[in-house]
Amino acid sequence: MDISSINPVLLIASLMVAATPILLAAIGELVVEKAGVLNLGVEGMMITGAIAGFAAAVETGSPFVGFVAAAAGGAALSMLFVLLTQFALANHVASGLALTLFGLGLSALIGQSYGGVKPPPIGKLDLGPLSDLPVIGPILFSQDLVVYLGIALVAAVWALLKFTRAGLVLRAVGESHDAAHALGYKVVRIRILAILFGGACAGLGGAYISLVRVPQWTDGMTAGVGWIALALVVFASWRPWRVLLGAYLFGGITVLQLNLQAAGVAIPVEYLAMSPYIITIVVLVILSADKNKAPASLGRIFHASQ
């Protein structure tokens, strides 16, 4: 075993890549949960986005079109969640599970003819001398654009929730849908928009896995990242910047265990591979004392007649 073969700069640069799918999905889910909706279908929307983006990118040869299609695919699947929870008033937990089961099947069905295909590569930022700087260059100035998009989304969501009227209304709907309704806000409409945003973000995250991180298509390739993203929202106590922190933490663990596998540490591969999931549980336990930060109407069904 040779731990010194792990380069810390490359480790940090690649943990940002590993963290991006979780980050995108989690920031979308944060907005959804802030609106008082618990969408457990993140995994299903991610995998749908992954195949939609992959298929579109392969067919058109453009990763950009791929990401747009992925966002559309994730949002389209979340529309089913809208129908179930906002119009058919179904239980949020059960509907989210349905979304995940359905998404996994649907993606496998669409993905049949895409096994073993290579997607078009995505361009990296190149700022000339800045990107060539030692240490900071590879970390800050030569990632692909989606990594920056993820960080920008976190900043945008934070600003939206903190400084704008729209953010205030969104939070009001999440804290007390009855009060928001009485004030004349369109509870259902606002929640639909939030759910669609969450779906689009999850789709982007999924496509990042299939187009950049892996990059190829295999069935069920998101492998629980959607669920980790859900855990991350709890971990972050519904605060955007903490989502970023948490995503990088999980990204770091993922990359580190892969590096340890490659370096041939004496721990069997299977035990290293289960570490991100175990650490998720541990973190959940440590932070579950902080429950009162959850939006008060989270997961409750709203019907104007009641």
């Binding site: 179930l84 058919a88 349905a98 998404g103 099947g105 496998a108």
Partner: peptide
């Protein structure tokens, strides 16, 4: 995978019709 989609669909209709 078509069967998997089929099973997922069943859960959707169940939840929706429960209304």
């Amino acid at each position: 995978a078509a069967i998997q989609v089929f099973q997922g669909m069943l859960l959707f209709f169940l939840l929706a019709l429960d209304l």
